[in-house]
Amino acid sequence: MENIVETEKTGSASVPQTGTGEHMQTAPHADEQEISKKTMGERNIREISKKQMVVKILVQIALYAFLTLIAVSVLFPFYWMLISSLKTWREYNEAVPTFWPRQFEWSNYTAAFTGELNLGRLFLNTLIVGVVSTLLSLIITILSAFAFARLEFKGKNIMFGAMLATMMIPGELFTITNYVTVTAFNWTHTFTALIVPFLVSVFYIYLLRQNFMQIPNELYLAAKVDGTSDWKYLWRVMVPMSAPTLISITILKMMGAWNSYIWPRLVANDAAHKLVTVGLRGATFLVDGMDNMINYPAQMAAVVIVTIPLLLIFIFFRKYIMRGVSRSGIKG
């Protein structure tokens, strides 16, 4: 405290050389004086302020214009799908497309359930596959994630690493053999073929394991002290605590069943087991009595019905979907 006054006095006369001590001050004094004199000169403040405001407003306008343009491009297919689905076939085929249906043709929607598409059956099939595979997949994922997160065993790291390594391999590589395997098991045209091969997702195991690892170790030790078995601890503590991740997995898995196309088309393309997307793509939507004329409004109605559940899930579970998505490049 006492030396303040001293510093005060000596300041301008002799520069205290307490720097880093790496080398003596090299800049000549004149140089530094120069710097101080060359400070930004006086300017017309008012003019600068005005220009600054104008630029700011223009930039904001440009940003909103750009974002609006993109938003319109993103939304346009949805809009077109909706209004097309409500048009009559005749109106749809007019030379100048209308941007709002003159007359709402709701029968396009009922046709989707009654016609060749038979959406009701497709929904049922998809629901069965979705629910069963989600449930089984959750159980398997939970058990595996627990083993990797909590239990100690020989070869754990090698095992986990090997599993992660399989994520690098494109799924197409598996499909050929799996098709042969499923045929050999006589599983073609069964729900089993749709469910079993995809029960294990290494990514979900990884995701859940990370979640489990975040649960503080003391909880596990406390459980041990209280005499709780691993099994009980897993289901009573870890699973409830990881609910958000489990919900994410459930949603993504259900969406996966809804959107899956390649595999179901390959192994279960019959009416009794067909899934929604396969049915949708496979249906011809031909206009009665005319060859090669596609009834686009009817097709769009079916597309709307397939799309709406997804959008609803997105609206209600936005947070969970985004959580899962931002950590992976996978879709569905």
């Binding site: 939304l75 196309y261 686009y296 769009m300 959008l311 985004m322 879709k331």
Partner: peptide, 25 residues
Amino acid sequence: FQTIFFLPYVTNAIAIGMVFMAMFT
């Protein structure tokens, strides 16, 4: 805006492909 831009992600690739077909055909 963020919600709108995310919408295409939660769609069925096959189904919306059919919409694009309808738009361009």
